[in-house]
Design a protein around this nucleic acid. Structure first.
Lengths: 365, 365
DNA sequence: TTGTACGCGTTATCAC
DNA sequence: GTGATAACGCGTACAA
C-alpha cells in the first residue's frame, strides 16, 4: 500500500510502480443468459422464461435453472432489458441540494417505496442551478428512467422543458419546490395554513411588529407562506404593509445579509417569521453577534424544520414537514402514474405539517 | 387539478376521473440514429461516425448531420452504447447515510469531477445496513457502472464481496469508512494524527481526567482515533486505562445513552474526546439536560465536523475534514483506475484536516 | 413444454 | 468517404 500525504490532489505525488499481485487479473466476463443455456444444454428462451416466471415452463426445470444460474452467478443485464423493453426499472430524483437534512430525508422515503418494487433510484442534485437541473433531467431521460421525482432549484423560472415532458405523458412528480405552471402530480404541505398558524402563534405570544423573510418569487410556496403571514395579520386586525415582507432567499447567508441591513438601519422588529430555517438561523446568528437576545429582543420562527432546529441555541420554533412521508407519497404517486397508460389525472396531495414551538418564539416578560 | 388533504397516502382519496386534456397524448418515441439516417438519406454508420468524431468523415457532412440531429432532438441511447461497449459511463457511489452533511458534501465533490468527464453519478445509500450496502453494490454492478466509490456502513464486517471485486480488477475507491483488509485505493485524513492533536488540545487546556467515546470496531478509523487519544496521554505522561475508552457508536443516540450511564454512575470526566460530532452532541444534550455546564463541568471535542458544530450551543470544537476535496480526490483516483487496464497500484491519499477550536473545549477558570 | 429468430440502438469491421 | 452487417444480452411471437 502506498501512503501519500497531500493537501490537494494536484500536489499528490504518484509513485507508480507495478503491483505484481494484481498483474495477472482479468476483468471477469459477466455471466450471460447464453452461458447458462450452454451449461444446461437448453435454449436461451427457456432460461429467460425461468427468470420471468411465465406459465409456459415446467416447474421443476424452472427451479433447476434458477438453482444452476444462481450457482453460476448469473443475473440479467438491466441494460439489455432496458434496451428491449424501452424502460429501465429506474426512476430519477432531482433535488436542489442535500446539505440540509430535508431533501435527504425525503429521498429515504422515496427509496423505501421503490426498493421493494424492484426499482432503482438514481439521485442527482442541481446545486440550486437551473442549468444543472435541466442537464440532470436530460441525463436521466436519456437513461430511460421510467419517471422522475423533482424539486425545483431556486433559480428555476422557465419550466417549458417540463411542460413538454408532461405533454408527452412522461411520468413526473414534484414536491416542495413546485411550480403552479405545471399540471402534474405534486406533494406538498399546506404552506398557507402553516404560515398562518406560525404567524398566529407569534401574535398569541403578544408580538405586533413582525416581519416576514420571504423566499424567491419563482417558487409556489413563497406566495403561499406570504399570504398566510398577511392573512393572520388581517384576521387579528394587525397593521402591515409592503415593508413587512422582505424578499430574502433561502440560505443562511441570505438571512444574515438581510438581518444585518435591518440592524444597521436600526429597524428591529419584535418578531420574524422566516420562509425557512436557514434564513431564520442566519438572522439568529446576526442578531446574536450584535448582542440581541432571542427571544426577548426579537422572536424567531422558521419553516421546514431541519435537525438543527432543536440543537441550536435558542431552539428554533419551526414548522416540521413529514419528510419521509413526503418521499413515500411522491414515490407512490409516481408508481401509479407509471402503471397507467394513456390517461392519467394529476393529483396534488397535501400532507399535514406540525408547528413545533420552542424557545425562540416565546414571549418573555 | 385535484387537491387532496391527507395525513398519509393510504388515507388518500383518489378521485379518479378522465382528464381530457391529457387524453390523446402518446409517449413520444425517442429519436434514434435510424430516424436521423432516414431523414438525411444516409446510413446509420455515417451518423454514428459524425457523433463519434472519427477521421473518416467529411467535415461538412459531419457538421450538417450534427445540426440536423440536434434539430431533431436526437441523442445517443446510453443503454445501447453500454450494452455494446460493456461499460456505461456511469459510476456508483454508496454511502451509509446522508442525513448528516458530511457524506452529501463529499458527493458534491465527486460529482464535480465526473460531471465534466461525461460520467453520470448514481448515488445509493445503505442506511448503515450491511445487507443494503451489498444489495446496492450488486445493483450498481449489474448496471455495469465503470467503478464505485464506497464508504462502508458501520455494520459491515464481512468484506469478502469487495475482495472478490478487487481481485477481478473492478475499479473501487473507498473513503472515510474503509477496511484495512482491502487492498484498494483509499482517501482518508490522518485519523491518528488529528485524534492526537484533539486530545493534546484538551491536555493543553489543563484537562487530565478524559474519556474517549469510540466508534464501531469494524472501522479502521476507530482504532486510529483510539491510538491518537492514547498516545497523546503517553506523550504527556497522563494516566489512562481500559475504562478511559468506551465503545459508543456513531449516532447522537449512542452519545446520549453512554453519557446517561456515566451520569447515573456519577462517573463524570473533565473532558470527552468523541469519535464524531454526533456522539459528542448526544453527550452534550444529556449533560445539559442534567444541568452540567459545557465547558466548565465537562469539555467536549468532536470529529468530522458537520455544519451543526458552529451552530449548537456551545459551539463544538471538532476536527474538520476537507469534504469536497475528499470527494474530488476519490473521483480522480477512480478515473485513473478506470483508465488503466491490467495493472494498477492501489493508492492511499491522506488529506489534511483542521482542528477548529470552539467554546466547548475551553478551560474555564 | 421448448426452441428459433427477430429486434431494441449502438458501434466496429468489413466491403465498396 | 460511405454503406451494409454483425455483434452486445435479453424477451417474446411464432413454430415445433
Amino acid at each position: 500500500m502506498l501512503i501519500i500525504f497531500s493537501e490537494t490532489f494536484s500536489e499528490m505525488l504518484l509513485y507508480l510502480s507495478i503491483n505484481f499481485s494484481n498483474n495477472n487479473f482479468q476483468l471477469m466476463k459477466h455471466i450471460t443468459i447464453k452461458d447458462v443455456a450452454k451449461e444446461l444444454n437448453c435454449s436461451v428462451s427457456t432460461i429467460s422464461r425461468a427468470f420471468n416466471d411465465k406459465y409456459d415452463i415446467r416447474k421443476e426445470t424452472r427451479d433447476h435453472i434458477l438453482e444452476i444460474a444462481k450457482k453460476m452467478g448469473y443475473s440479467p443485464n438491466p441494460l439489455a432489458k432496458g434496451l428491449l423493453k424501452q424502460c429501465s426499472n429506474q426512476i430519477g430524483v432531482v433535488v436542489p441540494e442535500f446539505t440540509n437534512s430535508f431533501f435527504p430525508e425525503v429521498i429515504i422515503g422515496i427509496q423505501e417505496v421503490f426498493i421493494n418494487k424492484g426499482y432503482q433510484v438514481l439521485i442527482m442534485q442541481s446545486g440550486e442551478s437551473q442549468q444543472t437541473e435541466l442537464e440532470n433531467v436530460k441525463t436521466l431521460e436519456n437513461n430511460r428512467v421510467d419517471g422522475m421525482i423533482i424539486s425545483l432549484s431556486l433559480e428555476t423560472k422557465n419550466v417549458d422543458y417540463y411542460k413538454n415532458l408532461i405533454s408527452q405523458g412522461f411520468p413526473l412528480v414534484f414536491f416542495n419546490r413546485v411550480s403552479n405552471e405545471l399540471e402534474t402530480s405534486k406533494v406538498l404541505i399546506d404552506d398557507y395554513k402553516w404560515a398562518f398558524f406560525a404567524t398566529e402563534h407569534l401574535i398569541y405570544q403578544g408580538y405586533k411588529k413582525m416581519l416576514h423573510f420571504s423566499g424567491p418569487e419563482g417558487l409556489m410556496f413563497t406566495q403561499n407562506r406570504k399570504n398566510g403571514f398577511m392573512d393572520a395579520h388581517r384576521k387579528h386586525k394587525l397593521p402591515f404593509n409592503q415593508s413587512s415582507i422582505i424578499e430574502t432567499g433561502l440560505m443562511i447567508a441570505d438571512g444574515e445579509r438581510v438581518m444585518e441591513k435591518l440592524i444597521n438601519s436600526n429597524n428591529i422588529p419584535e418578531a420574524i417569521f422566516a420562509v425557512n430555517d436557514q434564513t431564520a438561523i442566519g438572522a439568529m446568528k446576526m442578531l446574536k453577534k450584535h448582542g440581541y437576545k432571542i427571544p426577548g429582543d426579537v422572536a424567531l420562527v422558521g419553516f421546514t424544520e431541519t435537525k438543527l432546529a432543536e440543537l441550536i441555541d435558542p431552539p428554533l420554533t419551526s414548522v416540521a414537514q413529514p419528510t419521509k412521508e413526503i418521499g413515500r407519497t411522491a414515490a407512490k404517486l409516481l408508481l401509479e402514474q407509471i402503471g397507467i397508460k394513456g390517461i392519467f389525472v394529476p393529483q396534488t396531495v397535501v400532507l399535514n405539517g406540525r408547528l413545533n414551538v420552542r424557545e425562540s418564539s416565546m414571549k418573555l416578560k
